[in-house]
Amino acid sequence: MTIEVRNIVKQYGAFKALDNVDLRVADGELLALLGPSGSGKTSLLRIIAGLDWPDAGEVSFDGENALARGAGERHVGFVFQHYALFRHMSVFENVAFGLRVQPRAVRKSEAQIRARVKELLDLVQLDWLANRYPSQLSGGQRQRIALARALAIEPRILLLDEPFGALDAKVRKELRQWLRTLHEEIHVTSIFVTHDQEEALEVANRVVVMDKGKIEQIGTPGDVYDNPATAFVHSFIGESIVLPVDVSGGQVKLGHRPLNIDAGGAVGPSKLFVRRHDMQIGPVGEGALEGTVRRVRTFGPIQRADIALSGDDTLVEIDAPRDRPLTAGDAISLQPRRYRIFAGQE
C-alpha cells in the first residue's frame, strides 16, 4: 500500500503543528519520522491513522482518498507509545479484540480467531503469555502484544508512535532489531515516529527529518547523515562542531581569521558544520584552524579531546583515532576533512 500526503496543514490555536507537508511512502517501506518534540511528527502519524483530521490537504492510500474514512475503516494498525492495552482483558483477548468486533457478516469463527491469535502470539514470541493480563507484563512484552493486536486485523499500513520511547535502553535496542526483522517477514508498509536518531537510522529504509511542522529532508539513513540538506538536519543528526563564520567574496572567515576552505555557495553570516571525527589533527601551521588541547579522554578506538581554538578560546570537541596520542597543552592545527557551510546564523 502506498501512502500519499499532500499539502497537509494542521493548526492548534496559534501553533502550526504541520505546515504544508508533502510525503510519499512506497509500498512495503519502513519509514521513520524523526524530529524533536513539537516537530509535528506525531500529528502527521495521527492524521494518517484517522485519529485526527487536517485543516487542509489530502491523504490517500493507493490513490484512494483516506480522509473520507474514519480510523476504523482505514485498516491501519496503530501502536501507541504507552501501549494502550485493554487492562481488563487477557493478552489473548487483547489480540483477539480486532477480530471479535468485526461485523457479523465477515467475522471469523471462534476456532479461526483462536488460530489467528495463536499465530500472532507466536510471531511476537509471546505465546506463553496468552492468559496473563497486561499489568503482569514487562514494558517490552506489552509493546510486542500491542503490536500483535495491531497486526490482528491484517492492516494495510502499520503506524507506530514512539513505539520504544517508554522502554529502557537495553530493551529498546533489542526491540529495534526485532522490528526490523519482523518487517522483513511481513513487509507491510510501516511508518514509525521517533525522536531518537539512532533508532531511525538503524531501523528505517528511509528517514524523514522534521522540524517545526515542516519536512527538512527525506533520504536514506546514509543520506541524511552524510549529506544533510539543512543546518537543522546537520545539527540534529550526529554530533557536529558548529562554528559561526562569515563569507564574503568566496572567502570564509572565523572571526578575523581566514579559513582556507570552500564556501560552497553560502554568502554572509553562516555556520560551518564539521562532524567530530572529520577534523584532521596536524602540527601547527598545517590546518585551517589552530588551538590548544585542554583535556583528553580515551575510550575504545578513539580519543575525544577538548580543543580551545586560538583567538576566542571557543571549545570544540573532536574525536580522533588513537594512533597519534594527544596530551593536554599540545598546540595543534585542525583541518576539516568534510564540512558543510549553511548560510544564516540561526
Binding site: 504507552h82 479484540f97 468486533v101 468485526q102
Partner: peptide
C-alpha cells in the same frame, strides 16, 4: 486513557462496541 478508545477505534470497533467492551 483516551488512547485505549483510539486503539479500539483503529481496530475497527464501533463507538458502541468501544463503550460496552472497553
Amino acid at each position: 486513557d483516551v488512547e485505549i478508545e483510539e486503539a479500539a477505534a483503529c481496530l475497527g470497533a464501533s463507538r458502541w462496541q468501544t463503550i460496552t467492551r472497553v
